[in-house]
């Protein structure tokens, strides 16, 4: 029964939820609009950036991470880090295969 700090449970109210809802809807509109504009190299990056922003909003407010314990935050950070490791280290192989003719 360690880590019982911060034991008051935070209740996030409808105001925040409504605000987040509109932010998410705005993000959706924005990302669809951005995809119809030719930004070349930046198109996928912007799409992913908007998606990440939306996901972060959902995480922080709908999923209450903002009010969670450090442990939860750490666990999520660790999980995301490992997810990125899986993707990036696998991609590193595929990208660097083309670097030289071995």
């Amino acid at each position: 029964m360690s880590e019982q700090n911060g034991h008051a449970h935070t209740i996030v109210g409808p105001g925040v939820y409504v605000a987040i809802l509109f932010a998410l809807l705005a993000g959706t509109v924005l990302t669809v609009w951005a995809s119809f504009v030719d930004l070349g190299f930046w198109n996928p990056i912007i799409a992913l950036a908007i998606a990440t922003t939306k996901a972060t909003l959902v995480l922080l407010y709908f999923m209450h991470v903002k009010y969670s314990t450090k442990l939860t935050k750490l666990a999520i950070a660790g999980g995301v880090f490992l997810f990125l490791t899986l993707v990036s280290m696998t991609l590193a192989d595929y990208i660097s295969r083309a670097w030289g003719s071995w």
């Binding site: 280290m89 590193a92 192989d93 595929y94 990208i95 660097s96 295969r97 083309a98 670097w99 030289g100 071995w102």
Partner: peptide
């Protein structure tokens, strides 16, 4: 047949 560079890393 993985890239030799990522072989170094791993």
């Amino acid at each position: 047949g993985i890239s030799t560079y990522s072989a170094l890393l791993f």
